[in-house]
Design a protein around this nucleic acid. Structure first.
Length: 271
DNA sequence: TCCCAGGATTCAT
DNA sequence: ATGAATCATGGG
């Protein structure tokens, strides 16, 4: 295990910000995460964050996954350019980070997210992993499931997927899996593309429109300029930025501010 | 019973 | 180029 000190890291805020659906709290106060084919437990006490893995695994995998080499204070300092509302939002969620998650997992996860709520999105993804992901065991013996591969989902029928309570999104997922599996989309090239062309390519996938493509770009390709506009963000923009959001004040990283806003709006409503 | 949830697609005008 | 209807499922 390895412990770091970081005032701008909150595993709870990251979990609750709705960007990572397979990060969840355990009974004992820790959090567990299944990602990149691995299982990880995390514990945070104030600014001290403990990763229950070897130092090598932390350095090679999780340090990058949690974007720990990035100085988020420099992003937070821009919040004032968005007025008092953005200042409040940024102060409220200053422990949030944009994780560097897997592209395929983000694609399927955010196809599922459409017209859906976060609790049920988590449940759908969990079911999908249980039924179509490879079962593994962590070093300490905890069983977990990988996120299903494109091949595994392409092999499923639409009826099988509907049995996972995915609803009308079942066909989107099946067809998307087929497109990727059959190389009908330049999948491996996506990582090398800039934001506009990556977004355009992703929108060729069934079930991927403007908003979902932006989420995939932000969380799966780490394009920080992607600014997903969902129902929450749309309402905030209408209410607090009637003359337009000052995107130009956050060149190349408006997506980070989007996450502060999303989390702030989400948490201000669940009382 | 109706409405909403990190929308996208299709079809109408 | 906009706008309404439709798409499953579960929770309030």
């Amino acid at each position: 295990m390895i412990t770091i000190e970081n005032t701008l890291f909150s595993i709870d805020q990251i979990c609750e910000s709705g960007q990572c659906f397979r990060l969840r709290p355990l009974e004992n106060g820790r959090y567990c995460l299944t990602a990149l084919g691995r299982y990880l437990e995390i514990e945070q006490i104030d600014d001290a964050v403990t990763f229950f893995c070897s130092q090598e695994e932390f350095e090679e995998i999780w340090k990058n996954y949690f974007d720990l080499d990035t100085d988020y204070q420099s992003y937070l300092s821009f919040a004032s350019a968005g007025g008092p509302y953005l200042c409040e939002a940024a102060a409220f969620g200053k422990g949030i980070r944009i994780l560097r998650q897997d592209l395929w997992e983000m694609t399927i996860s955010f196809i599922i997210s459409q017209q859906n709520n976060i609790k049920r999105i988590r449940k759908c993804i969990h079911t999908l992993c249980e039924r179509y992901g490879e079962k593994k065991s962590s070093p300490n013996g905890t069983a977990y499931y990988d996120f299903p591969t494109a091949a595994a989902l392409a092999a499923a029928s639409e009826e099988d997927l509907r049995a996972c309570n995915l609803g009308y999104r079942s066909r989107y997922i099946r067809d998307t899996a087929h497109l990727v599996q059959n190389r009908e989309i330049p999948w491996d090239s996506l990582h090398g593309m800039h934001y506009p062309e990556a977004k355009e390519a992703l929108m060729k996938l069934p079930g991927v429109g403007t908003k979902v493509a932006d989420c995939i770009c932000l969380f799966g390709l780490h394009h920080l300029e992607a600014f997903p506009i969902d129902t929450h963000i749309r309402q905030v923009l209408e209410r607090h930025y009637p003359d337009g959001f000052p995107y130009e004040s956050f060149p190349g990283f408006a997506g980070i501010l989007q996450q502060y806003i999303f989390y702030y709006d989400l948490k201000s409503k669940d009382a």
